[in-house]
Write a protein that binds this DNA or RNA. Structure first.
Length: 491
RNA sequence: CGGGGUGUAGCGUAGCCUGGUAUCGCGCCACAUUUGGGAUGUGGAGGCCGUAGGUUCGAAUCCUGCCACCCCGACCA
């Protein structure tokens, strides 16, 4: 393993890229902007999926799958939706290749041009609502509560591993309701599901809020979001939940007959989180030694490293190591016994630190002698000698402690980087010298928001849901404002 | 799309100015000694130097075109 050390404090961006590669999470593919998610990275994503999927099902949703390709005409039906996505769509125009008779090269067969171009989905509202038209006739067909796990493509100018890739993996929920209230309740419920997942599983504290008009999803009436703060003081949008009103129902003519026999348009929501959460996870907890994974997401929660010199030592050590492995597995803990005899213990220590394994247990001849083990935790790097008899009840507890500790650490970091600004100078000073979230007054206009963005590169991350009303003056225009909103520079 | 970079073994690189088919490290294979914080030695395998053309007796090196990817911005989950 050839690890080029880049310090987090010196070049956050290079540190992040190195970490993603060195920890074996993902690498650049030969396709621009697209990455290969490696087994270790994918294992983490699978754990995220499992946790989310369980929560979706607990809240009454089912999974389904819709096509990757969307006829172009579907896109033109919801005006603001097209406008939002048109400039980043991959388009399929042909369906066949052939050998060019002169050059003998494989070329697109010009005769195989599609009658209507197909868009590679950047999101599936259109094709799903086109389908819902035939599924929904009566109030009895509502609500429709579906989710799909899928890949989508957005042809972004600039990409970053996990944070913004041309193709990415996500889930998108699409629900249909009889009333606006019910749809709004669904939107908020899913936001809560995301926030719960982020805080309790990813161990990343988030702020729940609504987006300003500028930042709203293309085609939504209201966009709710969860926003996290990364270690470099930049914000990251970690999930969104949209109240779509009747926009898509009208665009795709999806109506239902009420109990009273009238015809009404259906109300919609959509909500999603993506592999960007991998980026959030990495950027929230990791350090110069590598990844730090919350135990609830770690593919390997405990690694056991046997240490020995002589063959007879190996036998004794391995016997204990195997017994402890079995013991912990019985507790439902994911344990790896690293019995590779061609790597030194020191190498393994460093490797599992790089990969963020929460707990490391080392067993050597000394431990066999004393009926002990050495237990090291990744988050604090503390080591302790533990009696082997205590493993069974102390390790599960330790894992919980680590989960709590890294959440608390991230929460403390966020609290320390949460500022209020009352003047433009204060605002700029915080952005330039401190970074983090800034709570400030804004006159509520899109125009001012854009001007602030131009001048400062900071955007309104959200209007927090628990915001209290407070009279004040816009930091830029001085016009009256009724509440503070949350600004930050963001990914 | 603007700006900056890079393409040489699986990875990271030297060589390029001053042409003579390639350096070093990691990794890989074999054997031996090792193993409580990234082991050591010996031997070995692995490269049409991104691509197309040009100059030349001869091109990784000089010239021209092309391609790809990365990084920084604008755009976005």
């Amino acid at each position: 393993m050839d690890i080029k050390k880049v310090k987090r404090s010196e070049d956050y961006s290079a540190w992040y890229n190195n970490l993603v590669k060195n920890a074996d999470l993902a690498e650049h593919s030969d396709v621009k902007g697209c990455m290969v998610i490696k087994p270790y990275g994918y294992a983490i994503w699978e754990k995220m999926q499992a946790e989310l999927d369980r929560r979706f099902k607990e809240t009454g949703h089912q999974n389904a799958y819709f096509p990757l390709f969307i006829p172009k005409s579907f896109f033109t039906k919801e005006a603001s939706h097209v406008e939002g996505f048109a400039k980043e769509c991959a388009v399929v125009t042909h369906y066949r290749l052939k050998v060019d008779e002169i050059t003998k090269e494989i070329v697109v067969d010009p005769e195989a041009k599609l009658e209507e171009e197909l868009i590679v989905r950047p999101t599936s509202e259109t094709i799903i609502w086109n389908t819902y038209r035939s599924w929904i006739q009566s109030y009895r067909d509502l609500p429709v509560l579906l989710n799909q796990w899928a890949n989508v493509v957005r042809w972004e100018m600039r990409t970053r591993l996990f944070l913004r890739t041309t193709e990415f993996l996500w889930q998108e929920g699409h629900t249909a309701h009889a009333t606006a209230d019910e749809a709004i309740a669904e939107t908020k419920q899913m936001l809560d599901v995301y926030a719960d997942f982020a805080e309790n599983i990813l161990a990343v504290p988030v702020i729940k809020g609504v987006k300003s008009e500028n930042e709203r999803f293309a085609g939504a009436i209201e966009t709710y979001c969860i926003e996290g703060l990364m270690q470099d003081g930049k914000a990251l949008q970690m999930g969104t939940s949209h109240f779509l009103g009747q926009n898509f129902a009208k665009a795709f003519d999806v109506k239902y007959v009420t109990k009273e026999n009238s015809r009404e348009y259906v109300w919609a929501t959509s909500w999603g989180v993506s592999t960007r959460l991998m980026g959030a996870l990495i950027m929230s907890h990791s350090d110069d030694e590598g990844l730090i994974l919350p135990p609830r997401l770690a593919p390997i929660q405990v690694v056991i490293i046997p240490i020995f010199r002589k063959p007879e030592e190996k036998i004794a050590v391995m016997e204990k190591a195997e017994a402890y492995t079995a013991l912990l597995k019985k507790q439902g803990i994911s344990v790896k016994l690293d019995d590779r005899d061609y790597q030194s213990p020191g190498f393994k220590f460093a490797e599992y630190e790089l990969k963020g394994v929460p707990v490391r247990i080392a067993i050597g001849p000394r431990d066999v002698q004393n009926e002990t083990v050495e237990v090291a935790r990744r988050d604090t790097k503390e080591k302790q000698v533990m009696s082997a008899a205590d493993l069974e009840h102390k390790i599960p507890h330790l894992l919980e402690q680590i989960q709590t500790n890294i959440y608390q650490r991230a929460l403390d970091f966020r609290s320390e980087n949460m500022y209020a600004a009352d003047t433009w100078d204060e605002f700029m000073d915080i952005l330039e010298n401190k970074a983090g979230f800034i709570s400030a007054h804004w006159d509520g206009t899109a125009e001012t928001e854009l001007k602030i963005k131009d001048l400062s590169k900071a955007t309104i991350r959200c209007i927090p849901l628990n915001n209290h009303k407070e009279a004040g003056k816009c930091i830029l225009t001085g016009k009256p404002s009724t509440q503070r909103v949350l600004f930050a520079r963001a990914y």
